[in-house]
Simulated assay, not measured.
Amino acid sequence: MQPNDLIAPGDVWLVGAGPGDPDLLTRKAERLIRAADIIFYDALVGPGILDLIPDHVERISVGKRSGRHSKDQQTIDQLLVAASQAGKRVVRLKGGDPAMFARTAEEIAALRGVGANIGICPGITAASAAAASAGLSLSLRGVARRVQFVTAHSQGGKAIDLDWEALADPACTLAVYMGRDAASELSRALILAGLPGATPALITCDASMPQEKNLRTRLDLLPLVMKAFAENRPTLILIGEVVAQADLTACAEATTHKASV
Score class of each variant (00 low, 15 high):
Pro200Asn: 05
Met209Pro: 06
Ala99Cys: 13
Ile49Asn: 05
Ile237Ser: 01
Leu215Glu: 01
Gln245Met: 12
Lys88Met: 03
Ala134Pro: 07
Lys213Arg: 15
Leu111Asn: 01
Lys94Glu: 00
Arg59Lys: 13
Leu238Cys: 05
Leu24Phe: 08
Ala230Gln: 04
Arg92His: 07
Asn4Met: 11
Glu231Trp: 09
Ala228Arg: 14
Arg68Tyr: 10
Gly123Glu: 06
Val57Ser: 03
Gly18Lys: 08
Glu165Ala: 14
Ala168Asn: 09
Leu80Ala: 00
Val91Gln: 03
Gly10Pro: 06
Val81Ser: 02
Gly142Lys: 10
Gly113Gln: 00
Val225His: 07
Ala102Gly: 11
Leu186Phe: 09
Ser154His: 07
Val114Ala: 02
Ile49Arg: 02
Leu174Cys: 01
Gly119Trp: 04
Ala43Asp: 13
Ala43Glu: 14
Thr151Leu: 02
Asp161Ala: 14
Gly194Asp: 00
Arg65Phe: 01
Leu224Gln: 15
Met178Glu: 07
Glu30Phe: 05
Ala201Cys: 15
Arg27Pro: 01
Gly197Glu: 04
Asp72His: 10
Ala152Pro: 04
Ala207Ile: 08
Thr173Cys: 12
Ala17Val: 11
Arg188Ile: 14
Leu222Gln: 05
Gly179Ile: 10
Met100Leu: 15
Val243Ser: 06
Ser61Asn: 14
Glu231Leu: 15
Val45Thr: 10
Asn232Thr: 13
His56Val: 07
Ser260Glu: 12
Leu80Gly: 02
Thr151Arg: 07
Arg31Phe: 03
Leu93Tyr: 02
Thr199Asp: 06
Ala159Val: 05
Gly194Leu: 02
